[in-house]
Every structure is written in C-alpha cells, then in structure tokens.
Simulated scan of single mutants.
Amino acid sequence: MTTGWNETVRLDAVRKEYGRGAESVVALGGVSLAFPRGGFTAVMGPSGSGKSTFLHCAAGLDRPTSGSVWLDGQDLAKLSETELTKLRRDRVGFVFQAFNLLPALTVQQNVVLPLQLARKRVDKRLVADMLAHVGLADRRKHLPGQLSGGQQQRVAIARALVTRPAVVFADEPTGALDTRTAADVLGLLRQSVSGGLTVVMVTHDPVAAAHADRVVFLADGQVADEVQRPSAEAVAERMTHLGAWAAQRRVAVGGA
C-alpha cells in the first residue's frame, strides 16, 4: 500500500516492542492512521500511552517492529539509514518543547543551519520571508539568549519550515510557554497548514489541541478515539475517559 496523493504520512498496523520474550514491552500495538496534506492533527494520551513512540516511528526516527510507515510517498522500511537521514533532512521539520537553538549563532544563522547542513544554496529572500512570517525580521542578528522563550520557539519554527518540508512534527511545542505566547506559536503553525503543510503535534494541553483540525487519542499503544474540529472542552472530556477505556481493554485482553 502507498500513501494517497492527499496523504503525507500513513501508518499501517504499526507495532513497536522493546525487549524480547516475557520482558518485552509493547509501546504501539498495531496503530493505523493517515495524516492528510494541509492538515493539522493533535495526538494526545496519558503518560505511557505511546505518544512519543508514535512520533518517533511516524517521523522515521525509529523503525517499527512490524507494520509500515509511509512518508511523502516513500516506504520507510525500504530506505537505508543514509536515505532515511536524507528524507528527514529534506522533507521533515521538527519543533520540540526545548527550542534546541545553538546559543553562539544568531537568529538568522540558526534558521539557515538546516540548509547549510544539506549543502543547499541559501536563498536570502526565502530566509527573510521566513523570519518575517514568524515576526522576527528585526531580530535576525540577535542571539537566542537575547530573546524570550516565545521568540526562541518562533526561531525553531522558522528553522523547521525553511527547507519547505512536507510535514512538521511538533512535540509539546508550547509546553514551556505562557498561555498568550503559546497561542501565538500555535497560530503560526495554523497559518503554515493553510499553505499546504502537514502538522502533527503531540501535546497534553486541550487548549493547544483545539487549534488542530482533529485530535487522535492514544491509550495503551492503541488508537482509542478521535475528535474532528475539536473544542478544548470536548478534548478535556475525552481525556478524562481514556483511563477507563484503557483499563477496560486490559481486562478484555486479559480475559480473552
């Protein structure tokens, strides 16, 4: 199976186990999900639900035990480590809770770093447009230490977007930000989606998740639920039921 023309990422029956035999731990138990082009999906779940493992497998940072992952039309299982590294570099952007900026480089230098590592020509106009897009055109010569947390996350978003990726994976991108700054950062991701980018965001925050087109809920390594056009209230309500869903499933599996 391949990804459809309107899908950027697809997981088919993805299973990930750590360890072997009686000591093995199933982090993902056969997850199947598709992420459309120009879509914004939030992924939520309690601690230990498999969110981080899902993100690592979907982004090609880790290989699943079984099942398949397609990213931008390519079957990741058929790629060598070198080919996988190139695909991530060229077609995937990452935004994390920790901004991961290099403190000795200016804002502009941090943003163009992915292009330089890929030995690509730096289009100064593109970089200028990207800095303007995130509201930092007048801070391009500043060092990260001279910026607020929200401004640093804006730099991280510009760095993730500068290679014009097919998908951006965001892992708790607003976790270190205050409410107003978080809303600004989420608004930037929302704007990027309207330009055709796919965004997949792992978050624990119902308010952050409400910026997405849909929310997928994980529990015990399984897709437990999904909400379209979410509100923060609807997301919070579903989250309160996930523990009970997981407990019922464990009883059902144990009694099978």
Rank of each mutant, 00 (worst) to 15 (best):
L87V: 05
A59P: 03
K78F: 00
A58M: 07
S68I: 02
A77G: 14
D62T: 10
L76I: 12
L61Q: 05
A77Y: 02
R63F: 00
L84N: 04
G73D: 11
R63N: 00
L71S: 09
A77L: 10
E81W: 06
T85E: 06
L79I: 09
T85G: 06
L61C: 06
W70S: 12
G60M: 03
T82L: 13
K78C: 08
T85A: 13
T65R: 11
T82I: 08
E83T: 05
K78V: 02
G67L: 08
L87E: 01
L76R: 07
L87S: 04
L61I: 08
S66F: 00
D62E: 13
G73F: 09
D75K: 11
T82A: 15
L79N: 05
T82N: 14
D75Q: 13
V69W: 02
A58Q: 04
T85R: 10
D75H: 14
G60T: 04
L79S: 09
T65Y: 02
R63V: 07
G73L: 11
L87A: 02
D62L: 07
V69I: 13
G60I: 01
L61D: 06
S66H: 07
D72Y: 10
G60C: 03
R63H: 01
T82M: 11
W70A: 13
T65C: 11
L79W: 02
T65K: 12
L76E: 06
A77W: 02
A59K: 03
P64L: 05
K86W: 09
A59F: 01
V69N: 03
E83P: 01
A59N: 04
D62F: 01
K78M: 09
E81I: 11
W70N: 04
S68N: 08
V69L: 06
T85F: 02
W70G: 14
S66E: 15
P64N: 10
W70P: 01
L84I: 05
L84A: 08
Q74A: 15
S68W: 00
L71E: 07
A77H: 09
S80P: 03
D75E: 15
S68Q: 14
P64H: 07
L84Y: 00
T65W: 04
L71C: 12
A58N: 06
S80V: 08
C57V: 13
T82R: 15
D75S: 12
G73A: 14
A77P: 03
Q74G: 00
A59I: 03
P64C: 10
L84K: 05
K86N: 09
S68P: 00
Q74Y: 00
A58W: 02
D62G: 03
R63L: 09
D62V: 04
D75I: 09
T85C: 09
W70R: 13
G60A: 07
A77N: 11
P64G: 12
S68T: 15
D62H: 05
L87G: 04
E83F: 00
E83M: 04
V69T: 06
K86L: 14
T65F: 06
D75P: 10
W70K: 01
L76W: 05
L61G: 03
G67I: 07
T65N: 11
E81R: 14
L71P: 10
